[in-house]
């Protein structure tokens, strides 16, 4: 554990809590992509299968359980409790265009051709692109509520901080995981356009609205 890793995890935790608070307080899931949340649920479920096979630490186990629990609760809010506010017309990203290539890539490029390892690799690749339905939705509607922007900023920062963590770990421990690093770079790059809008607009008190 180092400061970058801890900040990354806290940023991830904050993103999830911000999203839940937004939905709970406004009794609405408007502007939130259910498809991205389903992809995140797939990511967490696939990656944290090791909850059953290996124990790392109390911290590790608690975070995994929290991430899995909250993502399924988020899906419940979107597709059941606050279904009436869900904007399915604008959540039209074709997720099969992500799942299929990512699944194929996980089979071809992995650390070890073993079931759990392939599933872990799949989760890493899928996470890197799981936000695309959400970003697609914002580009379709042309706007994002400020609270949704805070959510995305925290969520994007998390992997950017992990990149710092990996640089640190490479020098401090000789730790290097090429698959995680490349996917993390891709993931962070996908947020760059959003980060720019966040810094130039949201931080100055304006909400994100894109020209039609």
């Amino acid at each position: 554990m180092n400061i970058f890793r801890l900040c990354g995890d806290m940023s991830h935790l904050a993103a999830i809590i911000i999203l839940l608070l937004k939905m709970w307080k406004t009794r609405s899931v408007a502007g939130i992509s259910g498809k991205s949340q389903i992809l995140f649920a797939t990511v967490f479920t696939a990656r944290y299968l090791d909850l059953f096979t290996s124990f790392i630490s109390i911290y590790n186990t608690c975070m995994k359980v929290f991430f899995i629990g909250t993502v399924y609760f988020t899906i419940y809010l979107i597709y059941m409790k606050f279904k009436a506010t869900y904007d399915s017309n604008h959540d039209s990203f074709r997720v099969e265009f992500l799942i299929v290539p990512v699944g194929g890539l996980a089979f071809l490029v992995n650390h070890e051709f073993a079931p759990l390892e392939i599933i872990w690799t799949f989760s890493i690749y899928l996470e890197s692109v799981a936000i695309l339905p959400q970003l697609f939705m914002i580009s379709k509607t042309g706007e994002a509520e400020t609270i949704t922007s805070h959510y995305l900023f925290a969520l994007g920062s998390y992997r950017a901080l992990y990149l710092c963590n990996w640089i640190y770990r490479y020098y401090a421990e000789g730790f290097f995981d090429l698959i995680a690093v490349v996917a993390g770079v891709v993931q962070t790059i996908l947020y760059c356009d959003f980060f720019y809008l966040y810094i130039t607009k949201v931080m100055k008190g304006k909400k994100i609205s894109l020209p039609a």
């Binding site: 995890d9 790392i56 991430f67 650390h111 992990y162």
Partner: peptide, 10 residues
Amino acid sequence: GDDAVPKDEL
């Protein structure tokens, strides 16, 4: 490929 690495990260 490489050996599988332990997954202590989230």
